Computed example of a mutant assay.
Amino acid sequence: MPGVLATAHALSRVRLALAAARAAQGAWRGVDRDSLSASWSVALGPVIAAVAGAQLAAAQGTEPWLLRLLGRDPGQAESDRLDPFSLAGITGDGTPLAHALQVPIRTTLRLVGQGMPIAHAMARGQALLNLMVRTAVADAGRAADQVAMVARPAVTSYIRVVEAGACSRCIVLAGREYGTSSGFARHPRCHCGMEPVTAEHKPEAQDPKKVYDSMSEKQRKAAFGEAAVKAIDEGADIGMVVNARRGMTTAVAFGRTVQATTESTTKRGIARKATRSKGPRLMPEEIFRQTDDREHQVRLLRRYGYLL
């Protein structure tokens, strides 16, 4: 089973995501239905601040968590510390929040234009906003965890941490071990986390069937569906019942072939043009995808501002 600290770390990120989603939904409910675009543009600034603030808080929790869990890594350079500001104000694929959070209102306008009643269209837009906000916060936290793990030479891999309320696709991946730079398979609004593995810290891997057994009947049916629950209860292999890869990705992207952003963050503001390098700023996951050489990964993480 994952350690208490890893579980608490993941749950803290879930709470941050929920708080940001509530703030965004409050702003959405105040949108003027007679002036959708204009009123959302006015509301968007505080929403971006709330989401970026939650992303920053999620990323800021990484270094204290790893220090408490693993102690100091003697092989890590003092300069190779995570910069949490580098992961706030953008989505997991590098899109600035100011652009990404226009999608719900554009979706609403499109649905209204297609003849959907405005109340229904607004509800669809709100659901999309909720999904995007919670995903953005979770992705920032997971990216922070992975960047900080790669910067610690003692960390050799990570184990996927899954809670009982997770979906079926995540539950069948519970306890799997991956290299530190392996992309984290997730779906929108996924709240799974990771726990590092070192020579001294070897967390017990979760067993998907034990996670399933710990769930209530209601949770099982919500996650797996009634037919799958019946099959599993009758002895079917949980991994055979669930297609773990369906709907899962290591990049929540919007048609991008390379995960990059032209935005960076500083303590003075949410987002500004990157200054450490010319051209697009690669996202951490793209760095890990492009090279499996750890020293080169660390150099690129420094170059693009993820490590101080």
Rank of each mutant, 00 (worst) to 15 (best):
G75N: 05
P117H: 08
A49I: 02
L109D: 01
A136Y: 06
D83I: 00
H120T: 13
M116H: 06
A77L: 13
L56H: 12
A52W: 00
M149H: 03
S79R: 01
P153C: 12
D139E: 15
G113H: 03
A119F: 11
R68M: 13
A127P: 04
G53K: 09
A98I: 12
A123K: 05
G115E: 02
R106H: 10
F85I: 07
G115M: 02
A100G: 10
G53N: 11
T135Q: 03
V112I: 15
A144L: 07
A138V: 10
L66N: 02
A121N: 00
H120E: 11
A88I: 10
A50L: 05
T91I: 10
T108Q: 00
L66R: 06
T156F: 06
V51N: 08
G75I: 10
A127C: 07
L69P: 08
L109P: 02
G92P: 10
R152Y: 05
G75A: 06
P46V: 05
L109E: 12
G94H: 08
D139S: 14
G71Q: 05
A140W: 05
R68E: 15
A136W: 06
L129W: 01
A144V: 01
A88N: 11
V161W: 02
T108G: 00
N130T: 14
L97Y: 12
A98Q: 14
Q60G: 05
P96N: 09
L66M: 05
P153A: 09
Q102M: 15
A154K: 12
A49P: 04
H99V: 15
L101E: 04
E63Q: 14
S86F: 06
G115W: 00
G61D: 04
A148S: 15
G53V: 06
A88Y: 05
G71Y: 07
Q76T: 03
S86Q: 07
G61A: 04
P96F: 10
D80H: 09
G94A: 11
G53E: 06
L101N: 07
P96V: 11
R106E: 13
S86M: 07
L82S: 00
G92T: 04
T62I: 13
G141A: 06
I90S: 09
A138H: 14
G92E: 10
S86E: 12
R106C: 02
L131S: 15
T95S: 14
A140D: 08
A49G: 03
N130C: 02
L101Q: 03
A88W: 03
A50V: 06
T95Y: 10
A88Q: 09
R124P: 00
P74S: 08
P74G: 06
G75Y: 10
T91V: 11
E78Q: 13
D139A: 14
T95A: 14
V147P: 11
Q126F: 07
R110W: 07
R106K: 12
G125T: 00
M149D: 03
